[in-house]
Amino acid sequence: MTWFSRNREASSLRRWKPSGVTLFNLAMLAFAAAWLAPEWRDWPFPALTLDAPVPAVSSDRLSADFALCHRGDGTNCVVDGDTFWFAGVKYRIADIDTPETHSPRCAAEAALGARATERLAALLSAGPFSLESGERASDRYGRALRIVTRDGASIGETLVAEGLARQWGGHRDPWC
């Protein structure tokens, strides 16, 4: 028998017997794993608690200076109180209805529609905003239907609160 085979036989006969230091290390590792388990459960995203304040993060990234449209030039302009062009796309604000400025039924509708149009241009130009999808992507005229928000609040709701619009009820009601 050679030296190599004798050592191999001897090493295979040995059994692993943990020393006191090894058992202590294993016990500490198990304790640390059990103690840290709640923090590891949500890694890499920490758990949010109801007591902790959640920082407000604005996702508003769209912005432009809006003028009034003259026959649909299609470049960042407001058609009426609930319709505007932005970056070559025509949008209708999905959550409101405003008085008509094109073919109004009475002078009061025309005046209120003009005020709503001016106010929408001012609101859109006031800073970054977001366009959120609603129930449908577009209307029967091909306009993209979106809810316009700034800091999570609907710009349409601002027009409603100011008396320049009403919430969309699924159909147009007369303003006269």
Rank of each mutant, 00 (worst) to 15 (best):
P128W: 09
W85F: 13
A33C: 11
R115C: 03
S19Q: 09
A126T: 02
G152N: 09
R71Y: 06
V78D: 03
A144N: 04
D173M: 05
P174D: 13
G170Q: 02
F4K: 13
G20L: 08
L120T: 06
F129Q: 03
N7S: 06
R6M: 07
S138D: 03
T101R: 01
G20V: 04
F66T: 05
S19H: 07
L112S: 11
L23K: 14
A32Q: 08
R41S: 12
Q167I: 03
S5N: 05
R15Y: 00
N76Q: 04
E118F: 05
G163M: 02
T49H: 12
G169K: 08
V79D: 11
F45W: 07
W175V: 09
A111C: 08
D139Q: 09
T98E: 03
A67G: 14
V57G: 04
A10K: 11
V89N: 03
D51R: 14
D95A: 02
Y141C: 10
A34C: 10
W40L: 14
L124I: 07
S63N: 14
A137S: 10
D60Q: 12
E132C: 03
W168M: 02
S58F: 14
S138K: 12
W3S: 14
G72A: 06
A126F: 00
K90G: 04
E39C: 08
S58G: 14
A153K: 11
A30D: 02
V78M: 01
Y91I: 04
S58L: 13
A110H: 10
A165W: 05
A126E: 08
S12E: 15
R172H: 06
P104C: 07
A56V: 15
V160S: 00
A67T: 13
A121W: 05
E135Y: 03
D73F: 00
P18Y: 10
G72V: 00
L50W: 11
E39V: 06
A165K: 06
L29N: 08
S154Y: 01
F84I: 11
T149H: 12
M28A: 15
W40F: 13
C69S: 12
A165H: 07
S12R: 15
G170R: 01
E39M: 12
